[in-house]
């Protein structure tokens, strides 16, 4: 019986270690920890081109994460990309005329939305739309423009 007891203890430790490892993977390694962010408010923004932006990409202001991309769809009328953003509720004093741009983290990194605060006294609220947007930089377009202007300059 004594042996039975120590077996149970050791097995208990084993199961606990396994679950702890799983917990560590969930919380420390994956982004599950971020899902526990309290639900904030939703705003939308229309972009001409979102490049490689993905759902759940970060939304930052001055480098601080203030929200996440919740959904991406195509507006059937304007043919622009409609991005809905889930803003964290503690950032509830963001001016209404804030502008949004799509940036790339590093040369090869993922794309994210950067917000630049405006000067309006009123704040963004659930369901508001960010009007001032700047599309993602598409490398081919930039190069094309560069070559075009170079050619013009030569003439």
């Amino acid at each position: 019986m004594m042996q039975n007891k120590s077996t149970e203890i050791i097995v208990g430790l084993f199961v606990a270690a396994g679950l702890a490892a799983l917990f560590m993977l969930a919380m420390k390694v994956s982004n599950l920890g971020d899902f526990t962010d309290e639900a904030g408010y939703q705003v939308t923004a229309e972009f001409e081109n979102i490049g490689g932006l993905k759902v759940r990409a970060p939304v930052t202001m001055a480098g601080v994460r203030v929200g996440r991309v919740a959904d991406i769809s195509l507006d059937p009328v304007t043919y622009n990309a409609k991005v809905s953003i889930n803003m964290y509720s503690q950032f509830d004093t963001i001016p209404l005329d804030t502008s949004a741009s799509i940036y790339t983290a590093g040369l090869l990194g993922e794309q994210y939305i950067g917000l630049v605060a405006g000067a309006e006294e009123e704040f963004l609220q659930d369901g508001d739309v960010i009007d001032l947007t700047q599309p993602a930089l598409v490398l081919e377009q930039v190069i094309g423009q560069f070559l075009y202007s170079k050619a013009e300059g030569d003439e």
Partner: peptide, 16 residues
């Protein structure tokens, strides 16, 4: 069946 996922989780966690 119970042990295998626990062992794999330990493996990954320790590996990281």
């Amino acid at each position: 069946i119970i042990s295998m996922p626990l062992l794999a989780a330990i493996f990954s966690a320790v590996g990281i």
